[in-house]
Simulated scan of single mutants.
Amino acid sequence: MTNMIDDSIKIYHNPACGTSRNTLGLIRNTGVEPTVILYLDTPPSRQTLQQLITDMGISVRSLLRQNVEPFETLGLSEDKFSDSELINFMLEHPILINRPIVVTPLGTCLCRPSERVLDILPKPQLGAFSKEDGEVVIDANRQRVKK
């Protein structure tokens, strides 16, 4: 199956992340090839990052990845930084941006876990899909498997 390129769907992707790879797989399982933004190589602009946060309806702090350096080194666990300062840290150290973020015509979502992307995909799944760890997300009847 050849996937159609769809510029209206974007994923801020880190290929080293299993959740990000699973999310990309679920998007591709709809027959769509999204715009893949390797955000570690090409971080979003300040305006784009602020818009993504607004569109997701989350706090700036909730987009911060806490289990990576330089989170501890920068003292980001302390609640002393403004949203603007936190965004500065994310722009300076894109590894601090949690991922994957997916943008579709139906919404913008931090897809953790990866199946959250199913809530904002405009097209249905075309076949069964299992995560890399073997967990079935879409069954043979193309139905979402709920835990």
Rank of each mutant, 00 (worst) to 15 (best):
P44K: 02
Q125C: 06
V102L: 05
T108C: 00
C109W: 07
Y39M: 01
I53Q: 08
L38T: 09
P70F: 01
G18N: 11
Q125A: 14
E69Y: 10
L76S: 12
V145M: 05
R116H: 08
D79W: 01
I95A: 12
R112V: 11
K10W: 03
S8A: 14
L74Y: 04
L52F: 08
V137Q: 05
H13C: 09
R21H: 07
D83H: 06
T104W: 13
I53W: 13
A128R: 15
V137D: 00
G134A: 06
Q66V: 10
K123T: 02
R112H: 13
Q125L: 03
D6R: 15
T108G: 13
S114G: 08
I120Y: 04
L52V: 01
R99I: 07
L64T: 12
I5C: 01
S59N: 02
E78Q: 14
V36R: 06
I87E: 02
P113T: 03
D119M: 12
N3E: 12
I53T: 13
P15S: 14
C17S: 15
I87M: 07
P100M: 02
T42A: 00
I9V: 14
K146T: 05
R46N: 07
M90Q: 07
I138D: 02
I11L: 02
L121P: 03
M1K: 13
R46D: 03
R99S: 10
L74G: 00
L40R: 09
E85N: 01
S82T: 15
I138S: 09
V60C: 04
L76I: 01
G75E: 11
L40A: 03
P124M: 10
E33I: 05
A140F: 06
Q66M: 10
T48G: 00
P122D: 10
L106W: 06
C17V: 08
S20D: 04
I27S: 08
P124I: 04
P122Y: 11
P122H: 03
Q47M: 04
E135F: 07
S114M: 11
P70N: 11
I120C: 10
R99K: 09
L121W: 09
P124D: 03
S114R: 07
K10D: 01
A140K: 14
G134L: 05
V136C: 08
K80Y: 00
G75S: 12
D83L: 11
L91E: 13
G75N: 01
Q66H: 06
Q51N: 15
I9Q: 04
D79S: 13
A128H: 03
Y12L: 02
E72L: 00
T23F: 07
G134R: 06
R99F: 13
D41Q: 15
G25K: 07
G25Y: 12
V32I: 15
L118C: 08
Q50G: 03
L74S: 05
G127C: 07
R116T: 14
T73K: 14
P113K: 12
G31N: 05
P43A: 11
S20Y: 13
